[in-house]
Nucleic acid binder design. Structure first.
Length: 424
DNA sequence: TCTGGGGTCCTAGGACCC
DNA sequence: TCTGGGGTCCTAGGACCC
């Protein structure tokens, strides 16, 4: 059996942790640049505020109902997430962190007659130790445990926040209650298609033929989905030690950018951030992709037609050195840049990632690279430990007009010395 | 005026090889 | 007049997830 433990309204819950006066009140958290709504408490959901909608479209309802609004504060959420996952690891031998706010647990060895009690224990302990409310779903497969979790979230009082789908009849009842688009792995495109075939619930899909799924539902992906719905595990637990295969840093700009120099500064900054992530997993990359997105004026003011241009480079040898990456990428930015265009976003993607200790240096590079490595270590230590970007390359610029807007960010209560909670 | 960011997996199709 | 078949590797792009 497998469990999924999922934090309720995670970002909003993190904000509430340090502002107890917000308990029972509607709270929302915005995406980067204060663009979209990405987390809502139940009270905010009841007001009709929808997930992933632009903030400005909901401003009226938000102001009228005195909803508390926060810009996203990833320092805070990352640290609270780590506490939640540490708690789960202390309670269960096999934890796969699936995202910032949810983990799968392998329950082999837990008494099959006591799964419900175990789920309640996971929930209460996590909430007591971290202050973050969670829901727990348990079932034979990952897909079914997601179904269970969703039902637990929907009816927090009736289910006590915990649903176990152990018997075939429990599974059938749950799947009949679950609309097709709410099944994990069925997105918008496939949901539409399935509805045309008159497949409307999870139970309808479970009863489809696997060969049909191979033809009509994304090949092997569809076959696995149906097997999982039937209770045969096909999506296995992932090794927690696996490293990322690509690392991306991409952002909308706070203000549009017109000048090449500003565009280069932004890309250099994103590159530095991505390189830090790369070094943290002790990797080196062989390819770098850079893209810029412009949105030039058209005759209609309201038009939103972003157009992106991409370039990539295959490095002569894998590297984890920020300055080497910058020197390779700047010519690409110059190539992509068109004078007179209005740039709204840029991003970089590091690919073809290999373990850093397997980099092959040639004889001439060797000595210099060792010095560079030390420099990177020193920079990373300073930047991780104290304040972001205290030490950086000149290419990153100092004005940084393009930096994203975060007008309503709470303090980084747990990770930045200057912003710690004070007790008098 | 204002529409996020960071990932994974899979497939199709082209290039190339013998 | 006749013009193979099978394999691999790579890339772009789609679909999905939170």
């Amino acid at each position: 059996m497998k469990a999924i433990v999922d934090c309720n309204s995670f970002y909003a819950a993190c904000e509430r942790l340090f502002k107890p006066s917000l308990h029972g009140k509607p709270v929302v958290v915005l995406s980067n640049n204060d663009g979209c709504i990405v987390s809502r408490t139940d009270e905010a959901k009841e007001l009709g505020i929808r997930m992933a909608e632009p903030y400005y479209q909901n401003k009226l309802a938000i102001e009228k109902n005195k909803v508390a609004v926060f810009s996203s504060n990833y320092h805070l959420y990352g640290d609270i997430s780590r506490r939640v996952m540490e708690t789960l690891r202390s309670l269960s031998p096999s934890v796969e962190v699936y995202s910032v706010d949810e983990s799968f647990l392998e329950l082999t060895g837990i008494n099959e007659n006591k799964l419900y009690d175990y789920a309640l224990f996971l929930k209460s302990t996590t909430e007591l130790w971290t202050g973050i409310p969670v829901s727990v779903g348990i079932a034979p497969t990952k897909v079914l445990s997601k179904v269970a979790n969703r039902l637990a979230k929907k009816d927090k009082i009736g289910t006590k926040g915990v649903v176990v789908l152990q018997t075939p009849s429990q599974q059938r009842e749950a799947l009949e209650k679950t609309a097709i688009e709410d099944i994990w792995g069925v997105g918008n495109a496939n949901a539409k298609k399935l509805r045309l075939f008159n497949i409307n619930t999870g139970w309808d899909l479970r009863n489809m033929n696997e060969e049909w799924a191979r033809k009509n539902l994304g090949g092997i992906v569809g076959v696995r989905l149906i097997k999982e719905l039937k209770g045969f595990p096909c999506i296995e637990m992932k090794d927690p030690l696996t490293t990322k295969k690509m690392i991306a840093t991409t952002r909308m700009f706070g203000k549009p950018v017109y000048e090449l120099q500003a565009l280069k500064e932004a890309v250099s900054t994103y590159l530095s951030r991505a390189a830090e992530k790369l070094r943290r997993q002790k990797g080196a990359c062989k390819t770098i992709t850079v893209f810029v997105v412009r949105n030039d004026h058209t005759q209609f003011k309201s038009d939103y037609f972003p157009a992106s241009k991409t370039a990539y480079i295959n490095l002569p040898s894998a590297t984890d050195l920020t300055n080497v990456m910058i020197s390779h990428v700047m010519p690409l930015v110059e190539m992509l840049y068109q004078k007179g265009s209005k740039y709204i976003k840029a991003g970089i993607i590091l690919g073809d990632i290999v373990p850093a200790n397997m980099i092959q240096y040639n004889l001439f590079e060797l000595g210099e690279n060792l010095n560079q490595k030390k420099l990177m270590q020193v920079m990373d230590n300073i930047n991780f430990g104290i304040k972001t970007d205290l030490v950086k390359f000149a290419a990153l610029g100092t004005k940084r007009d393009w930096k994203m807007r975060q007008e309503m960010r709470s303090k980084r209560f747990t990770t930045i010395w200057d912003e710690l909670r004070e007790v008098r």
